[in-house]
Amino acid sequence: MDKRLLEILVCPSCKGQLHYDRTRQELLCRPDRLAYPIRDGIPVMLEDEARRISDEEADRVKPVSP
């Protein structure tokens, strides 16, 4: 995942900060409870394609620097 792209990407819905999960290759939005997938290095920033995450999973999200 490109570092500069990671710095400017936000949640397309709330424009809030995203958290990069390197292992799962996902970008997580805590307020919206959404995980946007990164497929073949391309972030998929469509709400319809995002995975819904539980409150517990959202609470585990910690800011990860790019």
Binding site: L5, I8, L9, V10, C11, P12, S13, Y36, R39, I42, P43, V44, M45, L46, E47, E49
Partner: peptide, 10 residues
């Protein structure tokens, strides 16, 4: 980046 022009993820 895959995205919708009406909800830009930037």
């Amino acid at each position: 980046a895959l995205g919708d022009a009406r909800a830009l993820p930037f």
